[in-house]
Design a protein around this nucleic acid. Sequence first.
DNA 1: CGCCCTGTTGAATCTGGTCAAACTAAGTGG
DNA 2: CCACTTAGTTTGACCAGATTCAACAGGGCG
Lengths: 259, 259
Amino acid sequence: MGRQAVQESNCVAISCQNCGLYQLCLPMGLDSADTALLDRYVKRRRMFKRGEVLYRIGEAFTYVYAIRSGSVKTYISTDDGRLQITGFHVPGELLGLNAIDEKRYNCEAMALETTSVCEISVECFEELARQIPSVHYQMLRMMSKEIKHNQELMLLLGKKNAEERLATYLLSLSRRFALRNYSPTQFNLSMSRGDIGNYLGIAEETVSRIFTRFQEEGVIASERRHIILNDLERLSAIAREPYSATAQVIPLPRIPNPR
Amino acid sequence: MGRQAVQESNCVAISCQNCGLYQLCLPMGLDSADTALLDRYVKRRRMFKRGEVLYRIGEAFTYVYAIRSGSVKTYISTDDGRLQITGFHVPGELLGLNAIDEKRYNCEAMALETTSVCEISVECFEELARQIPSVHYQMLRMMSKEIKHNQELMLLLGKKNAEERLATYLLSLSRRFALRNYSPTQFNLSMSRGDIGNYLGIAEETVSRIFTRFQEEGVIASERRHIILNDLERLSAIAREPYSATAQVIPLPRIPNPR
DNA sequence: CGCCCTGTTGAATCTGGTCAAACTAAGTGG
DNA sequence: CCACTTAGTTTGACCAGATTCAACAGGGCG
């Protein structure tokens, strides 16, 4: 995410590790044969320009997408056309998995900026899961993680006021950047105020106003899409979330190997 | 859900089919040996009374719960104590699966009424998945379904006004009852106005007021927790959802068998 | 029978939405 | 290179829907 040259080039440099499938298999301790197998399936690379759609609601579930660089938003809609953005996705994340049940995508995905992805056919993916059974398990973990994330968003949408929402949002971005070794206090947004407001369930004018207020209070500095978080602690207090200076290191859970 | 004698007895009568694991395995065409295997793991039955907690946030992930009769709410909280109910669960549903990633429950589950469950140890469940590989696949499908459901709730929380929320909610209940061959137009709620409001992100007074309004307009009739939907079509219009008289029959997707 | 919980209703208040307008940055094409 | 367009952002004024506070009604249960 972001357009700084340093981040872009960084993305490319670690694109292999960042490619989602790597993340899928990393915790499994795959041997090199497995990794080679994995590589076979990560062939098709595609670029999407800002505003281009990766997949639409109802389309047959044919590909899973691993983001290599750039960023993507996913959203659903009421039948009278109101959209709800359900997630912003950054390099290393896998898109489309939740279409498994109905075999059709149940949300739409659009590139927020020029975005490079690995397009993995579902058939290949299933073949992969057959040959490396613990891939199934990793998929479960990833979906479990997504459910947890969505639950937190529900809490935000259902119970938090506008200030808390925006503070929560900035902190969540900060943590995600920290995880990927980007600066947790200084970054560029790839999404517009309108997108942020939509995601958080508030009007874009409200987003603007609160950015201004945070800036007046010295909690952040923002110039258009460039954001500096000056006071993570105060931001955490506003968001009503426990403050953690650095990303918490959670010991990897024991992973049963079903092979 | 509901306290009508007819529904209760019905639940008991079809408890086997309603037990969640059955649902998990039903679409897989298990042979009788598999079914026997399945039965081995569904031993422990437990009862929870209204208000009793099945599991708490952060507790080690040791059991998966299949609801046999009754109903359960799940919820998460901000650290200053505000709760957000994330789901109401009825017979046939499986609870706890989304703890897979962190090996700890990430929400709390509480019985809304006297509730009977099958308690399945996670170890047994994993053993089961090892012996019947397509169980993995069914788990993926169930989690995929949950993600879709949560996305729809986000749309509701983020974009719909109070009337639309309540109408959407009533319709969603109606559909779930229809799926289980209960009346889609007449049922008892097991949750309070407060719970409904919490779930939908509105105050309980607002829930009450809108129930009254719907009743004045003749769309529904309600007496405390007993609800009659008089005009599903108008309700759909209010909810801004496509009207479907009966539950749509979706052809079962082709299920690859990884054995 | 009386208490308590749940639900209903009214009135005052306020957060955040809507509408409108000005402004900026970044293209776009002549 | 400049005029013009377009998309995105910010700000102000006003207003509506929903919350909050408060009082009260009714059912169910001990």
